[in-house]
Simulated assay, not measured.
Amino acid sequence: MLARSLIVLLVVLNAGVAIWWLARGDAAPVPAETALPGGVARLQLVGEAGPAAEAAPPPTPAPPPVAAADEPPAPDGASAAPPAPVADASPAPDAAALQCYALGPFTDAGKLAAAQRALQPRVARLHVREAPSTTRADWRVWLPPQADRAAAQALVERIVAAGFSDYYIIASGEQANSIALGLYGSEASARRRQSALRAAGFTDVQAEAVGDAPPATRWIDVASNAPLAAADGRALGAGRVEPLDCAGVPATPATAAR
């Protein structure tokens, strides 16, 4: 009797389990997804990745923060540094317009001072410089002294036979028995005479300046806002007006001559 009751109980329990199993269904409940902040991708398990996940576009990056129009005030004890000044690379208008000239040569101190006084109100800078003279007024061509008068006369005959004239035998003094072959007003003319005589075989012929060297000349260098012409130089007593590099004119204001 007890065994029969146990069998009936087991059948009832098995039937109940079978009914419960059929009633629950195959799909498990899907948990609701939690909303994520923008730009944050949902974490997926390896088994969850599928075609839909691969086709999903990448998250859109958040836009960069926009700077505020007004800068926040500096903290206490700190002062904002002022903006650095921008250097103006353009030249000063006066310096860009300057034109420089050399007026001269002046050999007379009075004419030089008068030209300075006339130029002083017209120019921005004025400087007087001295230029030593490199030219001589007269040049002579000559042959050194010979052993005696007879030797000098024999040499003169050779010179005449070579087609040259304008000779003179010095009779006395330190240069006695030397032969003068001409006096010339420029070095170029004297050098040409010397070259011709040497080409004819008179290799000892010399050319040299005579007399004292001319005095040094002076020039007025100016930096002017207006151009100067040759006529302006002549009016001031200067024989020439030559363009000049402004770097050669000292950066000092023009001063009146005394």
Rank of each mutant, 00 (worst) to 15 (best):
P58D: 15
P59V: 14
P59N: 10
P61K: 10
A62W: 02
A62D: 06
P63I: 05
P64I: 02
P64V: 12
P65W: 01
V66F: 04
A67I: 06
A67M: 04
A68Y: 04
A68K: 15
D70S: 15
D70V: 15
D70L: 15
P72Q: 14
P73M: 14
A74M: 10
P75E: 12
P75K: 14
P75S: 09
D76T: 05
D76S: 09
D76M: 07
G77K: 05
A78G: 00
A78I: 07
A78F: 13
A80C: 03
A80D: 07
A81H: 01
P83D: 12
P83R: 04
A84E: 14
P85H: 03
V86I: 15
V86M: 06
V86T: 13
A87Y: 09
A87W: 11
D88S: 07
A89Y: 07
A89S: 03
A89T: 12
S90K: 10
P91W: 13
P91G: 10
P91L: 15
A92L: 13
P93T: 06
D94Q: 12
A95E: 15
A96Y: 10
A97H: 04
L98A: 07
Q99A: 12
Y101N: 05
Y101S: 07
Y101F: 15
A102V: 03
A102Q: 04
L103H: 00
G104E: 02
P105I: 03
P105D: 02
P105T: 08
P105S: 09
T107Y: 06
A109H: 00
G110I: 04
G110K: 01
